[in-house]
């Protein structure tokens, strides 16, 4: 009973969020509606006892990725009205319609098949056996079997920080003109052969 109520509420949140994403006029509102959808999905994950996935959903998707979306939207300018009359790629509207129809057809097919096949039994791939929660087992594996990959990932973060600084840093004024050095070895415009 509680399961059903949670599911219905979460589904309402997810669907209204998803509709909001495509219906909102303002791109910032769209991005915020997306967060709502992602939170709804996180609730469904919690209901399925996938606590780690729920946390990742909130932290990574709602936290990091949507913030990235917002950054891009803000950088491009919110009030800039895009003309949606001109199509950059010809025929993309009919193509989108065909793909959408095909996707809906596939979903209906899957749903029909699922009704025929499913036994109504609980999924066997729920929580792992043994002592402790899923989260605890995950942590244990991460810091034993996958310790090395975990540590190597930390090196990646340092690379990302240094790389971001290198890419973003503006040169000091006196550095702007190139000192003598071997420049590009690229082809000249005339003598190119691809």
């Amino acid at each position: 009973m509680v399961d059903t109520i949670v599911f219905v509420l979460a589904a309402l949140v997810i669907l209204s969020g998803a509709l909001g994403v495509i219906l909102a006029r303002n791109p910032v509102h769209s991005a915020l509606m997306l967060i709502m959808t992602l939170f709804g999905v996180a609730v469904v994950f919690v209901a399925q006892e996938a606590h780690f996935l729920a946390a990742v959903q909130v932290i990574v998707y709602a936290g990091a990725i949507v913030v990235l979306f917002l950054f891009v939207i803000m950088l491009l300018g919110v009030d800039q009205a895009d003309s949606i009359e001109t199509e950059p790629i010809g025929g993309q509207r009919p193509a989108a319609g065909v793909v959408a129809l095909a996707s809906v057809g596939l979903l209906v097919l899957l749903a029909v098949r699922a009704v025929q096949v499913s036994s109504g039994a609980r999924s066997t791939s729920s929580a792992l056996d043994g002592e402790g929660t899923n989260l605890e087992k995950l942590a244990r594996v991460l810091f034993t079997d996958y310790l090395f990959a975990f540590e190597a990932t930390s090196a990646l973060l340092v690379i990302a920080v240094v790389g971001a600084v290198v890419l973003a840093r503006k040169p000091a004024a006196e550095d702007v003109q190139d000192r003598k050095g071997v420049g590009a070895l690229g082809r000249t415009r005339s003598g190119s052969g691809r």
Partner: peptide, 28 residues
Amino acid sequence: LISIFVALELLSIPAYLLAGWRKRDLRG
């Protein structure tokens, strides 16, 4: 698989940056 993927990223991401080290050159 996980070690291979982490190793691949560890060797690729610095390479992406190094390929564009000539920052003020469009071709870079």
